[in-house]
Write a protein that binds this DNA or RNA. Structure first.
Length: 236
DNA sequence: CGTTTTTGACCAGCGC
DNA sequence: GCGCTGGTCAAAAACG
């Protein structure tokens, strides 16, 4: 399967977050070195690795390589600087995962150029803002969220956790409904939603919100011989 | 019979 | 305020 990446936030509404990419051979994917192809977005050179994409949205992207350690340390710095909570969300592919801070989104990885040869965002993907709202002068507490995109015939990917569906909604301008799931573990309020990308129904968008208060509870007897595609080394 | 899914109702936020 | 949109509830149905 080819590495697919649209490089944009297509299909995401403003209330959604993140970008994502997944493929069959994610382990072999190494992002191209950054700083070599920034003609669409000429960046100010700074010492810091984390920079806002623009002033209004306070989003950030990483400018150097995407090792987990690097991402973690960089984002931790940013979080402390902004006196903010931060979820270091990261997925195996290292190519495009987003986390969310109070000031907006943090890109945790870059992306390869788009599959159709277009050269929109060679080394990283664009981002739209999710502004944290204030309610009665207080910042609304929002669980860390992130999402990713997978080419799959199956809607609900096996991520090692047990989910119960609690809703389904038809969203405008899309053919496929969006499904809402909640983690079945007691006291765990993690939610997840699944939908197909309107522009490319082969792609599944999986969004997570919150942190599990427990470890994955995948029943091995079922998953071993199961037919569901699994997301290995997936953590958040 | 306990658990999960379905599905319309309900509700909250937002733009006008 | 009003209507639109999307997220959640919950009762009933389906499931195993």
């Amino acid at each position: 399967m080819e590495m697919l990446n649209q490089g944009l936030m297509e299909g995401l509404s403003s209330s959604q977050i993140g970008f994502y990419l997944n493929s069959t051979n994610l382990n072999n994917y190494s992002p191209p070195p950054l700083g070599t192809n920034h003609h669409h977005h000429q960046q100010q050179q700074q010492s810091d690795d984390l920079k806002p994409l623009n002033h209004n949205h306070s989003n950030y992207y990483l400018q150097s390589s995407f090792t987990l350690d690097h991402v973690t340390s960089t984002l931790t710095k940013a979080a402390s600087r902004e006196d903010d909570y931060l979820s270091v969300n990261y997925n195996l592919c290292r190519s495009a995962a987003w986390g969310e801070g109070t000031k907006g989104l943090f890109q945790l990885g870059g992306s390869k150029r788009s599959c159709n040869g277009e050269d929109d965002y060679p080394n990283y993907v664009g981002v739209s803002a999710v502004k944290m709202k204030k309610i009665k002068g207080r910042r609304k507490v929002r669980e860390p969220r992130f999402c990713f995109k997978t080419m799959s015939d199956v809607d609900v990917l096996d991520d090692g956790y047990k989910w119960r569906k609690y809703g389904q909604k038809v969203v405008k301008n899309t053919l496929h409904p969006r499904s809402y799931y909640r983690c079945t573990q007691d006291n765990c309020r993690v939610k997840k939603r699944v939908e197909r990308l309107a522009e490319d129904p082969r792609m599944v968008i999986t969004s997570y919100e919150g942190r599990h208060v427990h470890s994955p509870s995948n029943d091995l007897d079922e998953s071993q011989g199961g037919t569901q595609p699994q997301l290995n080394n997936f953590f958040w």
